[in-house]
Nucleic acid binder design. Structure first.
Lengths: 206, 206
DNA sequence: GACTAATTACACTACACGGTGTAGTGTAAT
DNA sequence: ATTACACTACACCGTGTAGTGTAATTAGTC
């Protein structure tokens, strides 16, 4: 494959672009979208402001690119399917892992906070981000499979899914965002407890 | 008492002040703090900008006044104490009611969203608001009382409280904020289910 | 070394917005 | 009639900042 050399004339500018994105994230996280200035982003990146505008049409555009990367990163995980051979606990832990991924790294956590704060004030934007989030649908499928297999019992898989995600998000995600990760201390035990709570209610008694 | 007439000279300006506060809330909710302009607030209020600055030192000051009112409103509810004569379900519903109060009215819900979005990006501000929130401590007391009375069983009241609030906030509060209240459909049944989930795990079996 | 795309430095525009100063008005108390 | 005062309308200032135009410079490719 000669894809790399398909156009020799143009230099590879992806390095600068990447540098800009990485530093812009920091500035946006630190100041929020509105208060982050393009001058500061340029300075932090060690790049002229003009170069930023050569790579990105506008501030909003730059931010979009960051969000797009974040979403792509988040969605890299494949949906999880029900398995008879793995304990319910372990499989539920897998679902929670997708949520933990959003907050266990300081940069991702910062971005989660920023993006969440934006779509608290702009619900349309929120739809756009949250709408394409698959794990939730995936969990519903999983719950129904587990019910069919006689391991779980509930009336509404919708409601059960809401309970599970509510538990994880309420007890872990939100408190981690609001405490900047401090509440992630001992998160494994907390998660075990949440799963225990969930199964206390929905595990089928034989 | 002639307190009202203690100084006849000053006219009562609380009317204008109230009007400004009420309309400023709308503008802040619509645009966020940074993007809300004092000119728009003046126009919306039907009041000259100068008058706003006669009542409030600055934009930040005006916003503080709004937040203070919100907090005062929120904290009007007295803490709940354990009672042997009321079912656990009913008492837990009472705790949840304090949370529901923050999101059942469109204006309060808007303010909740705004304030939350601000302290996602400014954790110090968050401390200030969240730090003085009593229901959480109050629930821990309640849980321990119920345990002593032999109705509940758990190792850590901290963790149990976290689970309960996590359930309520994760399943109800956050989803109501992000859906602008749409998810409040059938919230009573959902709450019943959450309490059932909680008690499935922590109710003492005799 | 020549060519040229990428980058820089920097001056500049356009504009929004927080906040102030002021001249003047309506009104209720004296 | 006078006074005190809340209020309005409006011009104005300073500043921060998104975004542009341009000439000069750097550096990768041939």
């Amino acid at each position: 494959m000669a894809d790399i050399a398909i156009k020799r004339k143009n230099r590879d500018t992806s390095g600068k672009r990447k540098i800009i994105l990485e530093h812009a994230v920091q500035v946006f996280i630190k100041n929020g979208f509105a208060s982050a200035s393009m001058d500061e982003i340029a300075e932090t990146s060690g790049v002229s402001k003009r170069t930023i505008y050569n790579h990105f049409q506008s501030k909003a555009n730059l931010f979009q690119a960051i969000v797009a990367d974040f979403i792509a990163d988040r969605d890299r995980k494949r949906p999880i399917e029900y398995s008879k051979d793995i304990s319910l606990e372990e499989q539920l832990r897998d679902f929670a892992a997708a949520e933990l991924f959003l907050i266990d790294d300081p940069v991702r956590r910062g971005l989660s906070r920023l993006i969440t704060s934006i779509f608290l004030m702009d619900l349309e934007f929120g739809e756009h981000i949250h709408g394409q989030y698959s794990p939730y649908q995936s969990l519903i499928q999983w719950l129904e499979a587990a019910k069919k297999h006689g391991q779980l019992d509930f009336l509404s898989s919708q409601l059960a899914a809401r309970v599970f995600y509510g538990l994880v998000e309420g007890c872990i995600t939100w408190s981690a965002m609001l405490s900047d990760g401090a509440s992630l201390q001992g998160v494994d035990q907390i998660l075990d407890e949440l799963i225990e709570v969930f199964l206390s209610r929905y595990r089928k008694v034989r």
